[in-house]
Design a protein around this nucleic acid. Sequence first.
DNA 1: TTGGCTAATATGTCTAGACATAATGCAAGT
DNA 2: ACTTGCATTATGTCTAGACATATTAGCCAA
Lengths: 227, 227
Amino acid sequence: MLGWEDIRAEVLRRIRARDWPPGALIPGEEALAEEFGVARATVNRALTSLAEAGVIERKKRAGTRVAELPVRRARLEIPVIRLDVLGRGLPYDFKLLADRLAPAPVPVTARLGLPEGTPMRKLETLHLAGGRPFVLETRWLNPAVLPVPLPDFAQVSVNEWLVTHVSLVSGDIAFTAEPASPREAEVMGVVPGTPLLVAERTTQGTGGPVTWVRLAHAPGHRVAMTF
Amino acid sequence: MLGWEDIRAEVLRRIRARDWPPGALIPGEEALAEEFGVARATVNRALTSLAEAGVIERKKRAGTRVAELPVRRARLEIPVIRLDVLGRGLPYDFKLLADRLAPAPVPVTARLGLPEGTPMRKLETLHLAGGRPFVLETRWLNPAVLPVPLPDFAQVSVNEWLVTHVSLVSGDIAFTAEPASPREAEVMGVVPGTPLLVAERTTQGTGGPVTWVRLAHAPGHRVAMTF
DNA sequence: TTGGCTAATATGTCTAGACATAATGCAAGT
DNA sequence: ACTTGCATTATGTCTAGACATATTAGCCAA
Protein backbone atom coordinates (compact mmCIF):
# COMPACT_ATOMS: atom_id res chain seq x y z
CA MET A 1 0.00 0.00 0.00
CA LEU A 2 1.15 3.54 -0.67
CA GLY A 3 2.09 5.65 2.35
CA TRP A 4 2.35 9.42 2.57
CA GLU A 5 6.11 9.24 2.05
CA ASP A 6 5.58 7.45 -1.24
CA ILE A 7 3.17 10.13 -2.35
CA ARG A 8 5.64 12.78 -1.29
CA ALA A 9 8.43 11.09 -3.21
CA GLU A 10 6.35 10.72 -6.36
CA VAL A 11 5.17 14.33 -6.32
CA LEU A 12 8.73 15.48 -5.74
CA ARG A 13 9.90 13.31 -8.63
CA ARG A 14 7.37 14.89 -10.97
CA ILE A 15 8.44 18.35 -9.90
CA ARG A 16 12.10 17.57 -10.42
CA ALA A 17 11.36 15.89 -13.74
CA ARG A 18 9.57 19.12 -14.71
CA ASP A 19 6.32 17.30 -15.37
CA TRP A 20 5.13 20.09 -13.13
CA PRO A 21 7.52 23.00 -13.80
CA PRO A 22 8.08 25.91 -11.42
CA GLY A 23 4.97 28.03 -11.13
CA ALA A 24 2.65 25.30 -12.36
CA LEU A 25 -0.57 24.48 -10.59
CA ILE A 26 -0.62 20.85 -9.56
CA PRO A 27 -3.77 18.72 -9.26
CA GLY A 28 -5.89 19.14 -6.16
CA GLU A 29 -5.72 16.82 -3.18
CA GLU A 30 -8.92 15.08 -4.18
CA ALA A 31 -7.61 14.31 -7.66
CA LEU A 32 -4.26 13.06 -6.39
CA ALA A 33 -5.98 10.95 -3.76
CA GLU A 34 -8.02 9.27 -6.44
CA GLU A 35 -5.03 8.80 -8.72
CA PHE A 36 -2.93 7.14 -6.03
CA GLY A 37 -5.84 5.30 -4.49
CA VAL A 38 -5.44 6.77 -1.01
CA ALA A 39 -7.49 9.01 1.26
CA ARG A 40 -7.25 12.76 0.87
CA ALA A 41 -5.69 13.04 4.33
CA THR A 42 -2.75 10.99 3.13
CA VAL A 43 -2.15 13.28 0.17
CA ASN A 44 -2.52 16.23 2.54
CA ARG A 45 0.17 14.81 4.82
CA ALA A 46 2.54 14.50 1.86
CA LEU A 47 1.86 17.96 0.45
CA THR A 48 2.06 19.60 3.87
CA SER A 49 5.51 18.12 4.24
CA LEU A 50 6.60 19.42 0.84
CA ALA A 51 5.23 22.84 1.67
CA GLU A 52 7.27 22.92 4.88
CA ALA A 53 10.31 22.09 2.79
CA GLY A 54 9.58 25.08 0.55
CA VAL A 55 9.13 23.02 -2.60
CA ILE A 56 5.51 23.97 -3.14
CA GLU A 57 3.27 26.83 -2.09
CA ARG A 58 -0.27 26.20 -1.02
CA LYS A 59 -3.17 28.59 -0.73
CA LYS A 60 -6.76 27.90 0.11
CA ARG A 61 -9.04 28.18 -2.83
CA ALA A 62 -6.11 28.98 -5.13
CA GLY A 63 -4.60 25.51 -5.03
CA THR A 64 -1.04 24.23 -4.86
CA ARG A 65 1.73 25.43 -7.11
CA VAL A 66 5.37 24.55 -7.57
CA ALA A 67 7.56 27.24 -6.00
CA GLU A 68 9.04 29.64 -8.57
CA LEU A 69 12.34 30.27 -6.88
CA PRO A 70 12.48 27.32 -4.57
CA VAL A 71 13.85 28.65 -1.30
CA ARG A 72 16.74 26.49 -0.38
CA ARG A 73 16.84 25.95 3.35
CA ALA A 74 19.85 24.57 5.10
CA ARG A 75 19.56 23.37 8.65
CA LEU A 76 22.31 24.08 11.11
CA GLU A 77 22.40 21.90 14.19
CA ILE A 78 24.07 23.85 16.93
CA PRO A 79 25.81 21.35 19.16
CA VAL A 80 27.13 21.79 22.66
CA ILE A 81 30.81 22.58 22.09
CA ARG A 82 31.99 19.54 24.02
CA LEU A 83 30.04 17.23 21.74
CA ASP A 84 31.26 19.10 18.68
CA VAL A 85 34.86 18.48 19.71
CA LEU A 86 34.27 14.86 20.68
CA GLY A 87 32.47 14.36 17.39
CA ARG A 88 35.69 15.31 15.64
CA GLY A 89 37.46 12.55 17.53
CA LEU A 90 39.43 14.88 19.78
CA PRO A 91 39.57 15.01 23.58
CA TYR A 92 37.74 18.00 25.03
CA ASP A 93 38.73 20.39 27.77
CA PHE A 94 38.06 23.99 28.68
CA LYS A 95 39.56 26.78 30.76
CA LEU A 96 37.67 29.59 32.45
CA LEU A 97 39.77 32.66 31.70
CA ALA A 98 37.68 35.37 33.33
CA ASP A 99 34.54 35.72 35.40
CA ARG A 100 33.35 39.06 36.67
CA LEU A 101 30.26 41.20 37.16
CA ALA A 102 30.21 44.41 35.16
CA PRO A 103 27.89 46.77 33.30
CA ALA A 104 27.37 45.22 29.88
CA PRO A 105 28.53 47.25 26.89
CA VAL A 106 25.91 48.91 24.72
CA PRO A 107 26.05 46.53 21.75
CA VAL A 108 25.22 43.69 24.11
CA THR A 109 22.37 45.32 25.99
CA ALA A 110 20.96 46.70 22.75
CA ARG A 111 20.80 43.31 21.07
CA LEU A 112 19.24 41.72 24.13
CA GLY A 113 16.76 44.50 24.65
CA LEU A 114 18.02 45.38 28.13
CA PRO A 115 18.51 48.88 29.56
CA GLU A 116 21.92 50.42 29.02
CA GLY A 117 24.47 49.63 31.66
CA THR A 118 22.62 46.62 33.10
CA PRO A 119 25.08 44.74 35.30
CA MET A 120 25.75 41.33 33.79
CA ARG A 121 28.11 38.49 34.40
CA LYS A 122 30.93 38.27 31.89
CA LEU A 123 32.52 34.88 31.36
CA GLU A 124 35.44 34.13 29.10
CA THR A 125 35.98 30.49 28.33
CA LEU A 126 38.59 28.89 26.11
CA HIS A 127 37.45 25.58 24.68
CA LEU A 128 40.22 23.15 23.79
CA ALA A 129 40.25 20.29 21.31
CA GLY A 130 43.14 17.91 21.80
CA GLY A 131 44.85 20.51 23.97
CA ARG A 132 44.75 23.17 21.25
CA PRO A 133 42.53 26.26 21.24
CA PHE A 134 39.27 25.49 19.50
CA VAL A 135 36.87 28.29 20.37
CA LEU A 136 37.15 31.40 22.48
CA GLU A 137 33.79 32.07 24.08
CA THR A 138 32.98 35.53 25.38
CA ARG A 139 29.67 35.50 27.14
CA TRP A 140 27.48 38.00 28.94
CA LEU A 141 24.89 36.40 31.21
CA ASN A 142 21.78 38.09 32.56
CA PRO A 143 21.86 37.09 36.25
CA ALA A 144 18.27 38.20 36.76
CA VAL A 145 16.82 35.26 34.84
CA LEU A 146 19.09 32.47 36.06
CA PRO A 147 17.89 29.73 38.40
CA VAL A 148 19.77 29.33 41.66
CA PRO A 149 22.05 27.81 42.75
CA LEU A 150 24.59 28.70 40.12
CA PRO A 151 27.33 26.13 39.63
CA ASP A 152 31.08 26.75 39.63
CA PHE A 153 31.70 27.69 36.02
CA ALA A 154 35.31 26.63 36.33
CA GLN A 155 34.04 23.07 36.75
CA VAL A 156 30.94 23.09 34.55
CA SER A 157 30.99 24.72 31.14
CA VAL A 158 28.51 27.63 30.98
CA ASN A 159 27.65 26.50 27.52
CA GLU A 160 26.41 23.15 28.73
CA TRP A 161 24.88 24.27 32.00
CA LEU A 162 22.66 26.76 30.21
CA VAL A 163 21.29 24.17 27.84
CA THR A 164 20.17 21.87 30.63
CA HIS A 165 19.13 24.40 33.25
CA VAL A 166 17.52 27.26 31.42
CA SER A 167 14.67 26.94 28.97
CA LEU A 168 15.76 28.77 25.87
CA VAL A 169 12.85 30.06 23.90
CA SER A 170 14.28 31.73 20.85
CA GLY A 171 17.36 33.40 19.56
CA ASP A 172 19.45 34.25 16.59
CA ILE A 173 22.91 33.54 15.36
CA ALA A 174 25.09 35.38 12.88
CA PHE A 175 28.40 34.48 11.28
CA THR A 176 31.08 36.94 10.28
CA ALA A 177 34.76 36.87 9.41
CA GLU A 178 36.87 39.08 11.65
CA PRO A 179 40.54 39.72 12.22
CA ALA A 180 41.86 38.31 15.48
CA SER A 181 42.20 41.08 18.09
CA PRO A 182 45.48 41.26 20.02
CA ARG A 183 43.75 39.60 22.98
CA GLU A 184 42.27 36.84 20.84
CA ALA A 185 45.55 36.33 19.04
CA GLU A 186 47.38 35.88 22.31
CA VAL A 187 44.86 33.50 23.84
CA MET A 188 44.48 31.40 20.72
CA GLY A 189 48.11 31.43 19.75
CA VAL A 190 47.79 33.06 16.35
CA VAL A 191 49.11 36.18 14.64
CA PRO A 192 46.93 39.28 15.28
CA GLY A 193 44.74 39.98 12.28
CA THR A 194 44.35 36.29 11.36
CA PRO A 195 40.86 35.74 9.92
CA LEU A 196 38.59 34.08 12.46
CA LEU A 197 35.13 32.71 11.89
CA VAL A 198 32.99 34.42 14.51
CA ALA A 199 29.52 33.34 15.59
CA GLU A 200 27.48 35.82 17.59
CA ARG A 201 24.38 34.60 19.37
CA THR A 202 21.65 36.10 21.48
CA THR A 203 19.20 33.96 23.36
CA GLN A 204 15.86 34.69 24.94
CA GLY A 205 14.37 32.55 27.68
CA THR A 206 10.96 32.40 29.30
CA GLY A 207 11.94 34.99 31.88
CA GLY A 208 13.54 37.41 29.44
CA PRO A 209 16.89 37.83 27.67
CA VAL A 210 19.35 35.22 28.88
CA THR A 211 22.69 35.62 27.21
CA TRP A 212 24.79 37.14 24.49
CA VAL A 213 27.76 35.15 23.31
CA ARG A 214 30.54 35.55 20.82
CA LEU A 215 32.38 32.46 19.64
CA ALA A 216 35.69 33.07 17.90
CA HIS A 217 36.77 29.89 16.15
CA ALA A 218 40.33 28.77 15.54
CA PRO A 219 41.63 29.43 12.01
CA GLY A 220 40.45 26.86 9.47
CA HIS A 221 37.20 26.17 11.29
CA ARG A 222 34.33 25.16 9.01
CA VAL A 223 30.66 25.38 9.86
CA ALA A 224 28.93 22.89 7.62
CA MET A 225 25.28 22.38 6.77
CA THR A 226 23.35 20.14 4.42
CA PHE A 227 20.22 20.82 2.46
CA MET B 1 -12.36 24.18 20.31
CA LEU B 2 -8.74 23.25 20.82
CA GLY B 3 -6.64 22.78 17.71
CA TRP B 4 -3.36 20.98 17.34
CA GLU B 5 -1.44 24.23 17.65
CA ASP B 6 -3.05 24.88 21.01
CA ILE B 7 -2.04 21.42 22.17
CA ARG B 8 1.46 22.02 20.87
CA ALA B 9 1.67 25.33 22.68
CA GLU B 10 0.43 23.90 25.97
CA VAL B 11 2.81 20.94 25.87
CA LEU B 12 5.66 23.30 25.04
CA ARG B 13 4.66 25.54 27.93
CA ARG B 14 4.76 22.63 30.35
CA ILE B 15 8.17 21.63 29.11
CA ARG B 16 9.50 25.18 29.42
CA ALA B 17 7.94 25.55 32.86
CA ARG B 18 9.73 22.33 33.79
CA ASP B 19 6.49 20.61 34.74
CA TRP B 20 8.04 18.02 32.50
CA PRO B 21 11.80 18.46 32.92
CA PRO B 22 14.41 17.25 30.40
CA GLY B 23 14.47 13.48 30.23
CA ALA B 24 10.99 13.07 31.69
CA LEU B 25 8.44 10.78 30.16
CA ILE B 26 5.32 12.67 29.24
CA PRO B 27 1.80 11.17 29.21
CA GLY B 28 0.83 9.04 26.24
CA GLU B 29 -1.20 10.35 23.32
CA GLU B 30 -4.33 8.64 24.56
CA ALA B 31 -4.08 10.27 27.99
CA LEU B 32 -3.39 13.73 26.55
CA ALA B 33 -6.23 13.35 24.08
CA GLU B 34 -8.59 12.63 26.94
CA GLU B 35 -7.23 15.48 29.07
CA PHE B 36 -7.66 18.04 26.29
CA GLY B 37 -10.86 16.56 24.97
CA VAL B 38 -9.60 16.00 21.44
CA ALA B 39 -8.95 12.99 19.24
CA ARG B 40 -5.67 11.15 19.49
CA ALA B 41 -4.79 12.19 15.93
CA THR B 42 -4.85 15.82 17.02
CA VAL B 43 -2.42 15.16 19.87
CA ASN B 44 -0.30 13.18 17.45
CA ARG B 45 -0.15 16.13 15.06
CA ALA B 46 1.04 18.39 17.88
CA LEU B 47 3.64 15.98 19.20
CA THR B 48 4.94 15.14 15.73
CA SER B 49 5.53 18.82 15.21
CA LEU B 50 7.42 19.14 18.49
CA ALA B 51 9.50 16.09 17.63
CA GLU B 52 10.48 17.65 14.29
CA ALA B 53 11.56 20.72 16.22
CA GLY B 54 13.79 18.54 18.40
CA VAL B 55 12.00 19.41 21.63
CA ILE B 56 10.86 15.87 22.37
CA GLU B 57 11.99 12.40 21.36
CA ARG B 58 9.48 9.72 20.54
CA LYS B 59 9.88 5.97 20.35
CA LYS B 60 7.29 3.33 19.78
CA ARG B 61 6.46 1.39 22.88
CA ALA B 62 8.89 3.49 24.94
CA GLY B 63 6.77 6.64 24.84
CA THR B 64 7.63 10.31 24.47
CA ARG B 65 10.29 12.06 26.51
CA VAL B 66 11.56 15.61 26.76
CA ALA B 67 14.91 15.90 24.95
CA GLU B 68 17.90 15.90 27.36
CA LEU B 69 20.11 18.25 25.41
CA PRO B 70 17.58 19.91 23.16
CA VAL B 71 19.24 20.17 19.76
CA ARG B 72 18.98 23.75 18.73
CA ARG B 73 18.37 23.99 15.04
CA ALA B 74 18.76 27.19 13.13
CA ARG B 75 17.38 27.48 9.66
CA LEU B 76 19.31 29.31 7.00
CA GLU B 77 17.34 30.50 4.01
CA ILE B 78 19.69 30.73 1.08
CA PRO B 79 18.39 33.48 -1.17
CA VAL B 80 19.25 34.21 -4.75
CA ILE B 81 21.95 36.88 -4.47
CA ARG B 82 19.92 39.47 -6.36
CA LEU B 83 17.08 39.19 -3.85
CA ASP B 84 19.52 39.28 -0.96
CA VAL B 85 20.87 42.59 -2.21
CA LEU B 86 17.47 44.07 -3.01
CA GLY B 87 16.30 42.94 0.42
CA ARG B 88 18.97 45.18 1.89
CA GLY B 89 17.51 48.09 0.00
CA LEU B 90 20.35 48.41 -2.47
CA PRO B 91 20.28 48.31 -6.27
CA TYR B 92 21.68 45.08 -7.70
CA ASP B 93 24.04 44.50 -10.57
CA PHE B 94 26.63 41.94 -11.58
CA LYS B 95 29.61 41.59 -13.87
CA LEU B 96 30.81 38.41 -15.53
CA LEU B 97 34.58 38.54 -15.07
CA ALA B 98 35.60 35.24 -16.64
CA ASP B 99 34.05 32.35 -18.51
CA ARG B 100 36.10 29.46 -19.82
CA LEU B 101 36.18 25.71 -20.19
CA ALA B 102 38.98 23.98 -18.32
CA PRO B 103 39.80 20.82 -16.40
CA ALA B 104 38.48 21.33 -12.90
CA PRO B 105 41.00 21.31 -10.07
CA VAL B 106 41.12 18.27 -7.80
CA PRO B 107 39.41 19.81 -4.74
CA VAL B 108 36.41 20.59 -6.93
CA THR B 109 36.09 17.23 -8.68
CA ALA B 110 36.69 15.42 -5.41
CA ARG B 111 33.89 17.19 -3.60
CA LEU B 112 31.51 16.66 -6.47
CA GLY B 113 32.45 13.04 -6.94
CA LEU B 114 33.62 13.49 -10.52
CA PRO B 115 36.72 11.94 -12.13
CA GLU B 116 39.90 13.97 -11.87
CA GLY B 117 40.44 16.43 -14.66
CA THR B 118 36.81 16.48 -15.83
CA PRO B 119 36.43 19.50 -18.13
CA MET B 120 34.07 21.98 -16.53
CA ARG B 121 32.94 25.49 -17.19
CA LYS B 122 34.45 28.07 -14.87
CA LEU B 123 32.52 31.27 -14.31
CA GLU B 124 33.65 34.19 -12.24
CA THR B 125 30.93 36.67 -11.35
CA LEU B 126 31.17 39.79 -9.25
CA HIS B 127 27.89 40.72 -7.62
CA LEU B 128 27.42 44.38 -6.83
CA ALA B 129 25.23 46.06 -4.26
CA GLY B 130 24.78 49.76 -4.85
CA GLY B 131 27.75 49.69 -7.20
CA ARG B 132 30.10 48.24 -4.60
CA PRO B 133 31.46 44.68 -4.58
CA PHE B 134 29.15 42.44 -2.59
CA VAL B 135 30.14 38.88 -3.39
CA LEU B 136 32.74 37.35 -5.64
CA GLU B 137 31.36 34.12 -7.02
CA THR B 138 33.72 31.51 -8.40
CA ARG B 139 31.78 28.67 -9.93
CA TRP B 140 32.55 25.42 -11.70
CA LEU B 141 29.66 24.05 -13.72
CA ASN B 142 29.28 20.48 -14.91
CA PRO B 143 28.24 20.98 -18.55
CA ALA B 144 27.17 17.34 -18.86
CA VAL B 145 24.04 17.82 -16.73
CA LEU B 146 22.88 21.21 -18.00
CA PRO B 147 19.80 21.62 -20.14
CA VAL B 148 20.24 23.27 -23.52
CA PRO B 149 20.15 25.97 -24.70
CA LEU B 150 22.45 27.72 -22.28
CA PRO B 151 21.83 31.44 -21.87
CA ASP B 152 24.39 34.21 -22.12
CA PHE B 153 25.74 34.37 -18.61
CA ALA B 154 26.80 37.96 -19.11
CA GLN B 155 23.09 38.81 -19.31
CA VAL B 156 21.58 36.31 -16.91
CA SER B 157 23.23 35.57 -13.57
CA VAL B 158 24.31 31.91 -13.38
CA ASN B 159 23.13 31.93 -9.83
CA GLU B 160 19.60 32.70 -10.81
CA TRP B 161 19.46 30.69 -14.02
CA LEU B 162 20.46 27.53 -12.18
CA VAL B 163 17.72 27.89 -9.61
CA THR B 164 14.99 28.11 -12.20
CA HIS B 165 16.35 25.79 -14.87
CA VAL B 166 18.02 22.92 -13.05
CA SER B 167 16.36 20.82 -10.38
CA LEU B 168 18.71 20.82 -7.45
CA VAL B 169 18.31 17.72 -5.35
CA SER B 170 20.70 18.07 -2.47
CA GLY B 171 23.86 19.79 -1.47
CA ASP B 172 25.91 21.16 1.32
CA ILE B 173 27.25 24.50 2.35
CA ALA B 174 30.14 25.41 4.61
CA PHE B 175 31.29 28.73 6.02
CA THR B 176 34.87 29.66 6.72
CA ALA B 177 36.88 32.80 7.36
CA GLU B 178 39.71 33.26 4.89
CA PRO B 179 42.22 35.97 4.06
CA ALA B 180 41.55 37.71 0.75
CA SER B 181 43.87 36.38 -1.95
CA PRO B 182 45.68 38.95 -4.11
CA ARG B 183 43.17 38.32 -6.89
CA GLU B 184 40.19 38.68 -4.55
CA ALA B 185 41.69 41.77 -2.96
CA GLU B 186 42.08 43.41 -6.34
CA VAL B 187 38.60 42.57 -7.59
CA MET B 188 36.86 43.51 -4.37
CA GLY B 189 38.94 46.54 -3.65
CA VAL B 190 40.35 45.51 -0.30
CA VAL B 191 43.77 44.95 1.18
CA PRO B 192 45.13 41.42 0.57
CA GLY B 193 44.72 39.32 3.71
CA THR B 194 41.50 41.06 4.77
CA PRO B 195 39.23 38.49 6.48
CA LEU B 196 36.43 37.42 4.16
CA LEU B 197 33.44 35.28 5.02
CA VAL B 198 33.52 32.48 2.49
CA ALA B 199 30.66 30.13 1.68
CA GLU B 200 31.49 27.00 -0.27
CA ARG B 201 28.67 25.00 -1.81
CA THR B 202 28.32 21.83 -3.78
CA THR B 203 25.05 20.90 -5.41
CA GLN B 204 23.74 17.65 -6.78
CA GLY B 205 20.96 17.49 -9.35
CA THR B 206 18.87 14.68 -10.72
CA GLY B 207 21.38 13.97 -13.46
CA GLY B 208 24.44 14.07 -11.20
CA PRO B 209 26.73 16.72 -9.70
CA VAL B 210 25.81 20.15 -10.97
CA THR B 211 28.09 22.78 -9.56
CA TRP B 212 30.68 23.80 -7.04
CA VAL B 213 30.70 27.41 -5.98
CA ARG B 214 32.73 29.61 -3.68
CA LEU B 215 31.22 32.89 -2.53
CA ALA B 216 33.66 35.36 -1.02
CA HIS B 217 31.69 38.07 0.76
CA ALA B 218 32.74 41.66 1.18
CA PRO B 219 34.22 42.53 4.59
CA GLY B 220 31.64 43.03 7.29
CA HIS B 221 29.14 40.65 5.73
CA ARG B 222 26.88 38.87 8.22
CA VAL B 223 25.01 35.64 7.62
CA ALA B 224 22.14 35.61 10.06
CA MET B 225 19.77 32.88 11.17
CA THR B 226 17.01 32.56 13.72
CA PHE B 227 16.00 29.62 15.87
C1' DT C 1 23.10 -16.60 34.03
C1' DT C 2 22.17 -16.05 29.38
C1' DG C 3 19.72 -16.16 25.21
C1' DG C 4 15.74 -15.96 22.69
C1' DC C 5 10.65 -15.99 22.19
C1' DT C 6 6.23 -13.69 23.20
C1' DA C 7 2.85 -10.56 24.57
C1' DA C 8 1.92 -5.97 25.69
C1' DT C 9 2.06 -1.24 24.50
C1' DA C 10 2.98 3.44 22.55
C1' DT C 11 3.64 5.57 18.51
C1' DG C 12 2.90 5.69 13.29
C1' DT C 13 -0.15 5.78 9.75
C1' DC C 14 -4.46 5.23 7.14
C1' DT C 15 -9.52 5.80 6.07
C1' DA C 16 -13.93 8.11 5.37
C1' DG C 17 -16.48 11.65 6.40
C1' DA C 18 -17.32 16.24 8.24
C1' DC C 19 -16.93 21.08 9.04
C1' DA C 20 -13.85 25.38 9.08
C1' DT C 21 -11.46 28.91 6.67
C1' DA C 22 -9.49 31.67 3.26
C1' DA C 23 -9.33 33.46 -1.22
C1' DT C 24 -11.14 33.99 -5.65
C1' DG C 25 -14.11 35.46 -9.17
C1' DC C 26 -18.51 36.51 -10.63
C1' DA C 27 -22.71 39.12 -10.17
C1' DA C 28 -25.42 42.67 -8.66
C1' DG C 29 -26.02 47.23 -7.52
C1' DT C 30 -24.28 51.91 -7.24
C1' DA D 1 -16.17 51.87 -14.18
C1' DC D 2 -16.14 50.68 -9.54
C1' DT D 3 -17.35 48.63 -5.40
C1' DT D 4 -19.63 45.31 -2.46
C1' DG D 5 -21.13 40.93 -1.32
C1' DC D 6 -21.92 36.19 -2.00
C1' DA D 7 -21.19 31.58 -3.75
C1' DT D 8 -17.59 28.54 -4.91
C1' DT D 9 -13.68 25.90 -4.15
C1' DA D 10 -9.19 24.10 -2.43
C1' DT D 11 -6.81 23.63 1.50
C1' DG D 12 -6.78 23.06 6.76
C1' DT D 13 -8.18 20.55 10.44
C1' DC D 14 -10.84 17.33 13.32
C1' DT D 15 -13.03 12.81 14.62
C1' DA D 16 -13.46 7.86 15.50
C1' DG D 17 -11.91 3.79 14.52
C1' DA D 18 -8.62 0.54 12.60
C1' DC D 19 -4.38 -1.77 11.60
C1' DA D 20 0.92 -1.55 11.32
C1' DT D 21 5.29 -1.50 13.51
C1' DA D 22 8.87 -0.99 16.67
C1' DT D 23 10.41 -1.87 21.13
C1' DT D 24 10.42 -3.44 25.64
C1' DA D 25 9.53 -6.30 29.68
C1' DG D 26 8.93 -10.56 31.21
C1' DC D 27 8.97 -15.41 30.81
C1' DC D 28 10.93 -19.72 29.78
C1' DA D 29 14.41 -22.82 28.40
C1' DA D 30 19.30 -24.09 27.62
